[in-house]
Design a binder for these strands. Structure first.
Lengths: 198, 198
DNA sequence: AAATAAAGCTAACAGCTGTTAGTGACGTTG
DNA sequence: CAACGTCACTAACAGCTGTTAGCTTTATTT
């Protein structure tokens, strides 16, 4: 029987998924072959199928794992009613930056390669993302209503947040001499200062 | 003989290149097949080769045409010594926005698909882009020296410019009810105001 | 009208794509 | 030791890839 999912098995699949994320990010989903991936893992292409069921599944795994990570964090944040809107936004920004720094491969694949998801996953993924952005807007709207945040277009703010965080990628590539923590703090300070009322 | 390059010929290749830009943008370079492209143009795949010499050449054409367009504009701007630094930056921003609005397919391909260029084109392209960014920084440094621009990190400003303009894409997709001219003006006002000294 | 160039077509290629089938080696458990 | 699950291997597949060769049709020029 052996119903216990062996540690070897799950860590092997995990290793393959992370290697796939790195390759999909670097070369793009379509340009990455199963033989490339196998070579990276140190195995023949056919052997991969002892652990995964298809190339498409790898992309799904990467994209939805990231989507769920962001959604879960937002769930916890929304449930917390002791934080002000500004504090919530600060937590969101910190979380985005941390994800960008720690899990850059998966995040970039979810951003840039998700268009290669098959249906119905493609539609599901885009819906989840749309809802996520909408929920961020609602936090900001709430903050404006409570006069904790300057009166501005919530959608524009979300846009600013997302593209500011996106800028980290460049920064991260060129200025290696700044630590992740420093980066996080200085970004948060800059953005939050621009938002706070008065 | 007939040494005159017929209008038909050049416009046919142009048509193919623009269709390629649209497909490369939509589906990515690797995921776009010559049969897809041919279908879009209304022709069999083999017939494309009466006008172009390879798929790779199409990507080169798109990327370097865009690179040259930006570089040429910057050349003219640098040669002009009656403009202040702020005015020059304003012209740069306006140009970027106009390119983003008018030639979105080609610009996005040059941004996102250039990694699929073969050597030596890949290296050449990245070098041109690096030099372009460096030249923008120099305009800003010059403006700081002449006290026309606030004292800030030039590299950060260039980053801001480029990613702010990038945000237009989202905006453009969602808020169709604002004209390109309005968009350009409001973006320019916002960015320039943040930069000017005093 | 004859000649020539431009641009389409079909058929086919070699190589690569993701994936399956079948086999055997290894290590753990009964 | 026998049985079993895990996981690697080789060989092979059908379908797709960019591209070429050769031929024919359409348009332009002399």
């Amino acid at each position: 029987m052996a119903r216990i999912r062996s540690k070897k098995n799950s860590s092997r699949k995990e290793l393959i998924t992370l290697a796939a994320a790195r390759l999909f990010r670097e070369k793009g989903f379509s340009a990455t072959g199963m033989r490339d991936l196998a070579g990276d893992v140190g195995v023949e292409a056919a052997s991969l199928y002892n652990h995964i069921s298809s190339k498409a599944e790898l992309l799904q795994e990467i994209c939805f794992r990231i989507a769920n990570t962001f959604t879960t964090q937002l769930n916890e944040l929304e449930a917390n009613d002791t934080m002000s809107s500004i504090e919530k936004i600060e937590q969101v920004i910190r979380f985005h930056i941390r994800m960008w720094v720690d899990r850059i491969d998966e995040v970039l694949v979810a951003n840039n390669e998700s268009k290669y998801l098959d249906e119905p996953y493609l539609t599901t993924f885009y819906n989840e993302r749309r809802i996520y952005v909408r929920r961020l807007e609602m936090i900001i709207e709430d903050g404006i209503k409570k006069k904790q945040i300057r009166k501005i277009q919530p959608y524009a703010v979300v846009l600013l947040l997302l593209s500011a965080v996106r800028g980290i990628e460049f920064w991260h590539r060129t200025k290696k001499n700044i630590s992740a923590a420093e980066l996080e703090d200085s970004m948060v300070v800059n953005i939050i200062n621009g938002l706070a009322a008065q």
